[in-house]
Amino acid sequence: MRSTASLVRIVGVANVVVVLVALVLLGILPEEETPSRAMAKPAASPQPSAPAQPQQPPPGVVATPEFAKQVKANEAGMVPVIMYHRIIPKRLASIDRTPAQLRQELEKLARKGYVPITAKQFATGDIRVPAGKSPVVLTFDDGHESHFGLDAQGRPRRDTAVGILLEVARKYPHFQPVATFWVNRRPFGIDDPAEQAKAAQWLAHHGFEVANHTWSHPNLRALKSKQVREQIVRLERLLKKLGVEPSATIALPFGSMPRSKSAADRGSWDGTAYDFAGVFLAGAEPSVSPFAKSFDPGAIQRIQSNGKKGECRRWCSQYWLEWLDKHPKRRYVSDGDPDRISVPQAERGNIQAKRRAQLNAYS
């Protein structure tokens, strides 16, 4: 693995090339990937009377070295934190995904034994995943209307990211339907404050995370520290009005770190303070485990959801998910016990000193 300093330098380049340029090049439509049968439109079926509740973790197990070895646990492994933007039928920019592409990727993750957790759970090390399974963090930037909306019956619209995630979770029961939505001043394209609150509270009530992506999505590196803090606080105040908890995480617009990194982590403006457990970038490889010595909660890696074309030959989700398949010993695999950190003996030296009491190493 590269060092944290090296990762941040890489992101400085990858963010500009992969994210900022893609946003500017609207109208350039990348070649569509060939749909598989998994992407085929499902037959119409009645929706359930109420949305699926987030799956609860199975009854706790006490991980012993023998059990950890049996399930090939490695909680020092890498975790894919996948970044999505608009989910629209016709892609207008390279970072857009279609509903069929989102469904295909989520089903692939489910079949490969991944279980979604929120960005907050990941950043704080609260990883509750069944033994033998792997966490994945699904993140959606900008609070676009394609991410979430309620129909006339108060249920998630089927064509939104949440609707698709719930559909996949019904098909694969272990694939708990949770994700993180980092929003700006107009959450989910909604203007009415009461409707904004209704949407945000529905998501929070059903285990999703709604958190800070700044007020107006500026390039934070171009702002003074006071302006950075204002951008963050104004969005925090909006979230408070919407009735959701203070943000534990933030995604930096364009993945651009402020000139003063500390302004992104914590600070205050006009009497309102913030303190984030995790600051997320915009690329370009899986994150190290939150228990690893090299983990930097102030600069957490993400992977753009995309195929293997152009810049994405080495930096996007299809490449990295295939890479983790080919290198299973580098992938985070849970022991099913949230109170222990199970790793092969060779990895014990890579765990943070403050976590040593939880260490469960096996040979």
Rank of each mutant, 00 (worst) to 15 (best):
L281S: 04
A263H: 06
M78L: 11
L25N: 15
F276Q: 06
A179H: 01
V233S: 12
A76G: 06
A63D: 02
D141C: 04
V244Y: 05
S49P: 08
L138K: 00
P246E: 09
H206W: 00
Q345R: 15
E32H: 15
H217T: 14
V343L: 08
V8M: 05
L23F: 08
I117H: 02
A197S: 11
Q201G: 09
Y172V: 06
T98G: 03
G149A: 10
L324Q: 07
P42T: 10
H85A: 13
V62F: 03
Q153F: 06
L242E: 01
F291S: 09
G113L: 01
R313P: 12
D275F: 11
R170Y: 00
Y362A: 15
A169S: 04
I82E: 07
S256I: 10
E209H: 07
L7Y: 13
L150M: 09
L324R: 12
F181R: 01
S287E: 04
I28T: 14
K171Y: 02
Y319K: 14
R313F: 01
R331N: 09
F291Q: 07
V210A: 07
M257K: 01
A100P: 01
L106R: 00
R330I: 02
F148V: 11
F67P: 08
P65R: 14
I250W: 07
L150H: 05
E107V: 04
K261F: 15
L109Y: 01
C316Q: 12
S262V: 14
R170G: 00
V343M: 09
W320C: 11
L25I: 14
A119R: 00
W320I: 13
A353Y: 04
K90I: 12
S317P: 10
P46I: 03
K354I: 09
I250Y: 06
S146D: 05
H327G: 07
G77I: 02
E322M: 07
L26Q: 11
T64Q: 13
V79E: 01
P290L: 03
E209P: 00
I87S: 05
G267F: 00
Y274G: 11
V8P: 11
A273C: 08
E145F: 10
A361M: 11
